[in-house]
Design a protein around this nucleic acid. Sequence first.
DNA 1: AACTCGGGGTT
DNA 2: AACCCAGAGTT
Length: 439
Amino acid sequence: MGVRFRYLGAVRRPEPHPVPERAPSEWSAARVRAFRRSLLRFFEARKRDLPWRRTRDPYAVLVSEVMLQQTRVETVIPYFRDWMVRFPTPQALAEAESDEVLRAWEGMGYYARARNLHQAVQEVAARYGGTIPDDPEELETLPGVGAYTAGAVASIAFGVAAPAVDGNVRRVLSRLADDPGPSVGQLRLWAARLVDPSEPGAFNQGLMELGSLICTPRAPDCEGCPVARFCASREAGTQEERPRPRERRPVPTVWEAVAILLDRPTRRRTPGTARQWRVDGLTSVLVRKRLGRGLLAGMWELPGREVSSKGRASAEVVDLAKELLVRLGRNPGGVISEDVTALPPLDHAFSHRRMRYLPFLLCLGRSTEREGRPLGAVKGGAVKDGGQELVELRWVGQEEAQDLPLPVAQRKLLDQLWDQRAAEGSAQMGQIAISGSRP
DNA sequence: AACTCGGGGTT
DNA sequence: AACCCAGAGTT
């Protein structure tokens, strides 16, 4: 690498070593080697002790990488540990029930990842005899495995010199090149040029570790950065502006009326006060399974209906309850408005939508029963009708609900129902009173 | 290239 | 409240 110069007016002065060719794809071989050395030394010295770094089992690496998609390391750690105990091998996962897999994923979000991972190991069993492939292109044919995850698994588990560009790497490279918005292809090219051919796994993890610990989105620690001398943004003082944040659309708020149908809880009337019901863990609550695609696909939830205004909520809930009772083969006339009790609303934020759940308690009595029709006659089993996937309904008690995969907000709603014991304080064990006012 | 798809920690 | 996280799939 020769000494190069830049002209500043009439003054000619040497650039600081090394040469600031901005895009890593333009870097000299010597500069690339020096960068790799510095980064690998940093990773060796500073790498965190993470559960998935204690193994090179390709299955464990795959599980960790899928869990880490858009999810923080600290969040993933306990899920990864539990997962590897419950599903220690690809075979164990492949043979598991869908609900059990989703339940183990509950709380991490992006539930398509769990469904895809489940399907991926089944494909590995069918197509590769249970052995996870080492070729990034073959890895990428598995559901839920994209360019990043394929490169990460190939490099970390198998030592294949493939690039792996995640959010951290994108930020690091954008700053190294002082480019506000490099394209996906550009980033991939840079990462492929830089990746260390003999230790690709450590190198890729080193780039991510750097982005996570040093080259952070805000207030990066350039003083403590092992590759600061390679960084064009550092030289230009633009590191805080790289990469340029993408524009976001405003997040809409959606109201949803939720029907908490309780099957024949014990009712008690206290003169002069609000009506009260006694609800214990054995009281059945009606839940439904969401469709296999779209938001929260395959998860269970309390039945609900989007409402345009808060005032319509209780009426919509009564309508919904009657429809559900018809589908369950029971008498919809048994639902009357004075059975409806409004509970406190619950706000829940998705990244692209804000929800306000308006829960209503409906206590179903004897009048909704029909002769010769035992309680809970409709259970389990997805109903198909002319190829159309219909909603699966199920009555569950507290115990059964524990095993169902539920979105966080739905879990909160149900827990509140059964946790009133703590709030109420005075109730006997196993029996709780829920009181509320009529809407 | 622009959306959708969760949930939570940081600032 | 905005931002973003070891992204993938769909349109």
